[in-house]
Amino acid sequence: MIHGTIVVAKDICKACELCITACPQECLELSPHLNEKGYRYAQLKNDTCTGCINCAIVCPDSAITVYRESKKKNAS
């Protein structure tokens, strides 16, 4: 399994939850904490992220950056 992770620009996130719905690994949730605008921002809830980018594609606020284990590294 390829590993990935995401970084959410938490102060941009509006907690619309569309990323949570889009995630095939069901590895996203809303944080119990509030951001500066008062939204419970999205965050990873476990390490099953594969870096598939689905969450970032549907994010209306371009708040998600997706990282993935490089193929080179994975192959080695």
Partner: peptide
Amino acid sequence: KNEMEIVYKKPKTITDTPMHYCPGCGHGV
């Protein structure tokens, strides 16, 4: 994260201004 590569990020031609659209609005996408 440090050992990984970025596979998706905000397009460079989108400015850093936070969008005024309501949560979940299709405009942003």
